[in-house]
Write a protein that binds this DNA or RNA. Sequence first.
DNA 1: TTTTTTGCAAAACCTTTGCAGTTGG
DNA 2: CCAACTGCAAAGGTTTTGCAAAAAA
Lengths: 158, 158
Amino acid sequence: VALRAPGGEGALTRAHPAEPLHFDSLDEVVAHVRAGGGRLSLPRRLILEALFVSDAPVAAEEIARRLELDPASVYRNLEKLEGLGIVRHVHLGHGPGLYSLVGRGAREYLVCERCDRVTAVAPERLDAVRGAIRDDFGFEARFGHFPIVGTCADCASA
Amino acid sequence: VALRAPGGEGALTRAHPAEPLHFDSLDEVVAHVRAGGGRLSLPRRLILEALFVSDAPVAAEEIARRLELDPASVYRNLEKLEGLGIVRHVHLGHGPGLYSLVGRGAREYLVCERCDRVTAVAPERLDAVRGAIRDDFGFEARFGHFPIVGTCADCASA
DNA sequence: TTTTTTGCAAAACCTTTGCAGTTGG
DNA sequence: CCAACTGCAAAGGTTTTGCAAAAAA
């Protein structure tokens, strides 16, 4: 198959540490930023705190709005933090990317295209699915960037 | 889980006919457009032909450029045709959506985030995976809108 | 003749980049 | 002090919308 993913060089590529990171406190996050050569400006601290506190992934614009920061600065921070393996983002539909801290309560997603309901599940719950993909394609799948799209049980029966 | 897919009302929602459509000729496509109350302007004919001829999904801009049509018109056409269940689009990465005719050689996708390689497979090859998802979540998955993202066999061994 | 579709222009939306000034270490 | 980071402004890439003219049925 002679296709390449669009979006420029490594559009989808981010840091993928062999050891999945896990942060139990903001201090651990902060330490990891420093370890990666990053500085801890006030905006960056605020962004990290917002992500740490949020249970659902958040859009960059939303973070900027809530913290009264410049969107450009928020995007740059998220990009850098993603490079450090501290943050990731998911595309649940056609809207903006949604950002979250890695590790702490990581989730993978299913989106029903009939009712738009998003189901967030712990990655382990998709291990059987991942296994089937591994068996058939030798491919190690991750549903944290793009969700599984389809029809949920409720909509299928209706 | 209290999330909704972003991107406006029914952003991901398209026509999902119970009987999957299948077109063996442009004439069948044309007939289906008419059956859906659509007209067959020259631009629309050209777009349909371009899609019919193409083996890989194509960006709207690319279609517009090649056919010397207005991008707005191409987008409107693709949107309408998608509503009629004749066309669909996939997001393989962060670039533009890529459009193709439904039915004729339908494909689902795996994208390696290390090397950006796109693997297009016949839907049947993902039936075991779909089965695992159905068993675990009662969810009928479709990998034609968002691909399965992860690490391909080559990159995993490297 | 009526409704759809077109092209053009402009805007909307999400994200990135350039730059000069500020700040963290 | 110096590299990293900031805000602001502007631009980039993708897609949508408004509108008057043209074309399909």
